[in-house]
Design a protein around this nucleic acid. Structure first.
Lengths: 189, 189
DNA sequence: GGCATCATGTAACATGTTACATGATTTT
DNA sequence: AAAATCATGTAACATGTTACATGATGCC
């Protein structure tokens, strides 16, 4: 019923009216790490939600730049409540770095270590961002949002620890332990 | 250069020739939890890879059902090596359950607990599957693939522990600690 | 004979990304 | 005056999902 982008938008508007630009900023700061959205989705989606009567846009030219502020309607709140009540909740993870590692049988130990290290630094950067967030705006978010942030922080911490452990395991083994096509040989090609 | 589906296919064919059906089965069993693919992507992608000379299909009607087996070509191996060498590796996480939790300010404590519990059981089921996998086919996978499986196992374990901890935190607080629209009141927009 | 599994696809739809395009206002 | 930020979009492309469609073979 509600598209992915649709529900994030409605969820954010629950608190206060915002422009498309504001919405994007809020998502990036808070839910972006597990539910990203881009301008080219947000603006069309706002139009669609307005056509369905779930949000209402008003022109706000009060001194500032002119912008369209969208507010959630009663129907919008009802739709949001319905979406919240629905127990379905799919989740996905997609990690290209892990896939490269997975298929890295033909790489040298050093190349593998480099892959793992790249994964680690990427996650470390994201972790730093979330930690800064957690420190700097505890009053802006409610308790649930803080707990969600905790999810992200521990998730990145976990990934980083996997990287470290994996690197240690790799480093402890001689190069020869990773032959090219160890498996392919067995039953005939 | 290589599409997502393209690189999983090429990676799998590195070990042995397979039909589209086989490929799907292998992905589901191993890399599926962090890199899913469906038939409707695999078959067209195989055609595309063949047109580019990266794989080669041969009709195999040896007694069994007729099927097209695809083998990776030399050009395919080169392409795979290029992809592996490329340091870029984006990753994404998308979790609708977490988003519902995030926006759950208007839910009762019991409803929130139900959400968290649903997340937990979903992950527990996936964890059970991976654990079974880890027990049952250690000889089928190389060491890298086993480490990748470890990634999945600890990832699910982590999510489950977050759920438990969050449930405990919620349970310890009185209902009144979660008012509707606690934030919206403050500074008026 | 019936069910599960093997086997291969198409069509319609939904989702989402990147690059392009523009311009006003505020801050430095 | 220049740079950053606010502000809103479009177009082309890529990716991917779900439902539909079909049929052979192997196993009980």
């Amino acid at each position: 019923m509600l598209s992915n982008t649709g529900c994030v938008i409605l969820g954010l508007l629950q608190k206060q009216p915002m422009s498309g630009y504001d919405i994007k900023g809020h998502i990036d700061l808070t839910a972006g790490f597990f539910f990203p959205a881009s301008y080219s989705q947000i603006y069309p989606e706002l139009k669609k939600l307005e056509a369905e009567g779930l949000v209402e846009g008003t022109q706000a030219d009060t001194g500032r730049r002119s912008r369209t502020e969208y507010a959630i309607t009663r129907a919008g709140r009802a739709m949001l409540a319905e979406w919240l009540a629905d127990p379905s909740a799919d989740s996905e993870l997609r990690d290209e770095g892990l896939l490269k590692f997975f298929f890295g049988g033909s790489l040298t130990r050093e190349e593998l270590l480099a892959k793992v290290d790249a994964m680690k630094s990427m996650r470390a950067a994201e972790l730093a961002r979330l930690n800064e967030l957690a420190d700097n705006l505890p009053e802006l978010a409610d308790e649930l949002q803080q707990m969600t942030l905790e999810f992200g922080i521990s998730f990145y911490e976990y990934v980083i620890s996997w990287c470290e452990q994996t690197a240690a395991t790799l480093a402890a083994r001689p190069e020869a332990d990773f032959p090219v096509d160890k498996i392919a040989s067995g039953s005939g090609e």
